[in-house]
Design a protein around this nucleic acid. Structure first.
Length: 829
RNA sequence: GCGGGGGUGGCGGAACGGCAGACGCGCCAGACUUAGGAUCUGGUGCCAUUGGCGUGGGGGUUCAAGUCCCCCCCUCCGCACCA
């Protein structure tokens, strides 16, 4: 009987399911652990990235279960989104049918991997039982003033036919299709995530200690908090004031121009007052700016272009008129879309002024230097001393900034302000396959929310998607037409759906009470299970899902539904699975299908290899040879049980304590067993180094092979070793471990059996290798009894013949003695 | 440009400031075999004769540096006209 993984894996998956081994309940009397992986989009098939992600999570969940925790470990599907619409067109099906077919197929695939999910808790975001709560939460946000509609220049992806949130624009391109994003003026739905900007920044320090530093930095940069001041320019001949934000109020006396973004609202007001010829030129310039894609406009190296308007704004301090320009490098997305131009101390402004012949007035001198605006070749952006600024001359920069803002506030020239880069979350999408936004447009009452008791607003499922970029909802008059909940008159439904990131912003709370019908979740469940103790997923969500979910959690806490303000206590971002140096992709043809690996080698092998081949955060290079190696190791474990089965079965459960062992080889073996268990525990629990944990198991296996029991004690030790090995292997290769456990005569489930305890006295060595160095170089190794004191150790080493030979009569001028470790003798030459 | 990783055998990767290269892959040899691409055992950083040299390069701290400090090079990843 060999290692028949197919039979074994099917068998144990069936038994776990029959015995409901991994179903858990809220139970405040038990310590809990919430282990979660980012739920997948039901694209149709699992890929290696999924396998890697879930193999880590399942290993942890299984480990912690054996460590005595009540482990919540659920799985679900992020099931709304564009690919379903594209597939519907391509395969002439319905997004609904395609998605559900994929969900069922992928669930089977996941089950074949032996992942220990509590499947009763499966959540699908396209299920009305789920998305009704999207709508409900959206209405709560609306009630709390966090939802609004606004016409604004927004990111538009032409191929996708929809708008995008700022977070979904990557380097000026659409995060999904990577086509350049353009700006369009559209009326859209927004969520005021910016109300939480400060807390989102603050809690990076206090609440995300368990996150990789990299992700914390990415979020900090994305939120982009900067302190400064806001000042206003009163525009001459127009009843308008331009607010502008600056972090360098100390350079306020160096303003020589004002610059506006092309989208600035003042542009239209100015055009109204301008004579036609000039107005046309300005319109052309604005059009030219706006025609640039986001990529072009955000390229720091691009040429700065400007247009001088015939208007001036008054300098808030000096009252001098300052010319107003429109410039292509001013972003409407940041600050107020207008800046105070200080060419002396901002390189962009400097380049702009040199090009258009605008004056440069230095107001900060570097230490020991005096700048000349006429001859400067670059802006001076560093710290220095204020000049050309009246009473403030001579102040060092770091002092000048707060001093001058204080003065400006007192005199009414400015107000202290904190600016964030984060913009409000554009939540509406011109898509079909998503959560309907629960609002109607009534000609009399305006835009009205659907009352909560009328939720969900169901998404019609029997649709035909004909073309990309046209929601079939627009062709459903019977769905669009409804009655206004306020006046009862005919009204139109909102046809936009929600960004699918809305769904994924709170699903972790839904897992806590998946069937709950009174609210998104039952607080008695979330109070127990939340926050997620370990979250695992890709780094690509650093500034998307991981920010949105944090925001949701804070909002839900504010309305009294959650007790935690951060959703994920610890975050593990796993590296990519690559092959031949490149990310696995269909176009490169280097994709390895998990299904094939599972049928060739089994799920246990796939899991073991993927956890062994690289540390979790690193990219993992897929290697067929490596997979074979993992498979070989499992075979080795199998044989070491099978070959000794009779003796193993008859020596069950009797641990021989260290002090009862006399023979050195028995003591050594016992020590190897316990240090292996201790190391595996530490590697998983503290270091999160799963690859080295597996290496320990291989060492233990090698030790078992090398050990040949000669007496009853030896046989008992061998059994202890095998038991320990199976326990430790069980989170990694649960099926084969369970099978071998049963072969040994056990009736219980290994998956639920307690993790082995480590006997501390079995970790203490009898003999240690003392490294003897001379001038830091290894010169001898001495096997000596452990626990020698410094003096004693020094004496033994100095008396050793090989050491004396090495010293060749030289007397050490210094002796470094580290007990149980090394002796370093320092000699002259 | 700014920020963050990372550079260790033929390869993936190990190493509380204390024996560099655990474990695995590959390779070499042996055993068992009709056979071996199965299995088991042993070997395997480089150069050489004792002995040297080795963790991207160069300095430094230290009895001792892959590990700490300074400078430089290369690479991957984020962000990038953020006022």
């Amino acid at each position: 009987m060999g290692y028949d993984f197919q039979t074994i894996e099917t068998k144990w998956q069936r038994i776990w399911e029959e015995r409901r081994a991994f179903e858990v309940e809220t139970d405040p009397s038990k310590p809990k652990f919430y282990c979660l992986e980012m739920f997948p989009y039901p694209s149709g098939a699992l890929h290696m990235g999924h396998i890697r992600n879930y193999s880590m999570g399942d290993m942890l969940a299984r480990f912690l279960r054996k460590r005595g925790m009540n482990v919540l470990y659920p799985m679900g599907f992020d099931a709304f989104g564009m690919p379903a619409e594209n597939a519907a067109i391509k395969y002439k099906t319905r997004p609904h049918d395609w998605t559900w077919k994929n969900i069922e197929h992928m669930t089977i695939q996941l089950k074949r991997m032996g992942y220990s999910y509590d499947w009763r808790r499966r959540v699908e975001s396209c299920n009305p039982d789920y998305y009704r709560w999207n709508q409900w939460i959206f209405l709560q946000m609306y009630k709390h003033g966090l939802v609004y509609q606004k016409e604004a220049p927004v990111n538009w992806c032409e191929p996708c036919g929809t708008v995008l949130a700022n977070e979904q624009v990557e380097g000026g391109t659409c995060w999904r299709c990577h086509h350049p994003v353009i700006k369009k003026n559209l009326k859209q739905w927004f969520i005021k995530i910016t109300d939480y900007a400060q807390e989102l920044v603050d809690d990076i320090e206090t609440g995300l200690q368990g996150w990789p530093e990299r992700v914390r930095i990415m979020q900090r940069n994305w939120l982009g908090r900067s302190e400064g001041a806001c000042l206003e320019f009163e525009v001459l001949d127009l009843n308008y004031t331009i607010p502008a934000f600056t972090t360098r109020f100390d350079t306020v006396f160096g303003i020589t121009f004002i610059a506006l973004a092309a989208e600035h609202e003042l542009v239209a007001l100015m055009l109204n007052k301008m004579e036609e010829g000039e107005a046309q030129k300005m319109r052309d310039f604005v059009a030219q700016c706006m025609a640039q894609s986001s990529i072009e406009r955000s390229d720091a190296g691009a040429e700065k272009l400007g247009f001088k308007t015939p208007f001036c704004g008054l300098h808030p301090v000096t009252g001098k008129p300052i010319p107003i320009w429109i410039a292509n490098y001013i972003l409407m997305d940041y600050g107020t879309g207008a800046i105070m131009g200080v060419p002396g101390h901002d390189q962009r402004d400097f380049d702009f002024c040199r090009k258009y012949g605008i004056d440069v007035i230095p107001v900060i001198n570097p230490e020991g230097e005096t700048l000349d605006g006429a001859t400067m070749e670059t802006a001076f952006e560093g710290d220095g001393f204020v000049c050309n600024s009246g009473q403030f001359n001579g102040l060092p920069t770091q002092e000048a900034i707060p001093t001058m803002i204080d003065w400006g506030e007192k005199e009414g020239y400015c107000s202290r302000e904190i600016q964030f880069r984060l913009r409000d979350w554009l939540i509406s999408r011109q898509r079909y396959w998503g959560t309907p936004i629960p609002f109607v447009h009534c000609p009399h009452c305006g835009t009205m929310p659907i009352p909560e008791d009328q939720l969900p607003v169901l998404l019609p499922e029997d649709v035909e998607v004909r073309e990309v970029g046209r929601s079939p909802l627009l062709d459903r008059p019977e769905w669009l037409s409804t009655l206004c909940p306020q006046c009862g008159q005919p009204a139109q439904r909102e046809a936009d759906t929600m960004d699918t990131f809305f769904c994924s912003s709170w699903y972790f709370a839904r897992y806590c009470s998946p069937g709950y019908t009174q609210a998104p979740f039952d607080t008695k469940d979330t109070d127990y299970w939340m926050a997620v103790d370990q979250y695992i997923g890709g780094i690509e969500h650093a500034c998307l899902h991981l920010i949105y979910a944090r925001f949701f959690t804070k909002f839900l806490a504010d309305i009294g539904m959650l007790k935690v303000r951060e959703p994920f206590t610890n975050l593990l971002t796993q590296g990519m699975v690559i092959k031949d140096g490149a990310k696995m992709s269909k176009s490169l043809g280097n994709v390895v299908d998990p299904t094939e690996i599972v049928s060739t080698y089994g799920a246990d092998t796939a899991r073991l290899f993927i956890l062994f081949a690289a540390p979790p955060q690193n990219d993992l290079d897929w290697s067929e040879r490596g997979v074979e190696g993992a498979h070989r190791f499992i075979g080795r474990v199998w044989r070491c049980v099978e070959d000794n089965l009779d003796s193993l079965r008859t020596h069950e459960g009797r641990r021989v304590p260290m002090k009862a062992l006399k023979k050195p080889e028995l003591r050594d073996f016992k020590r190897k067993i316990h240090s292996a268990v201790a190391a595996v525990t530490r590697d998983i629990e503290e270091e999160k180094q799963f690859n080295t944990a597996i290496a320990r198991l291989m060492e233990l296996t090698n030790a078992i092979y090398a050990f040949h029991p000669e007496d009853e004690t030896g046989h008992a030790l061998q059994r202890e070793a095998v038991d320990s090995l199976l326990h430790c292997l069980s989170p990694f290769c649960p099926h084969v471990a369970e099978e071998l456990w049963e072969m040994l005569g056990n009736k219980t489930l290994l998956s639920l059996a307690p993790w082995p305890t480590v006997e501390d006295e079995a970790l203490v060595a009898d003999v240690v290798t003392i490294v003897v160095q001379i001038n830091g170089k290894l010169r001898a190794r001495l096997e000596l009894p452990a626990g020698l004191g410094k003096e004693e150790l020094e004496k033994v080493v100095m008396e050793d013949a090989s050491v004396q030979e090495r010293l060749q009569g030289r007397e050490p001028i210094k002796k470094i003695v580290v007990p149980d470790k090394l002796v370093n003798l320092v000699v002259k030459n």
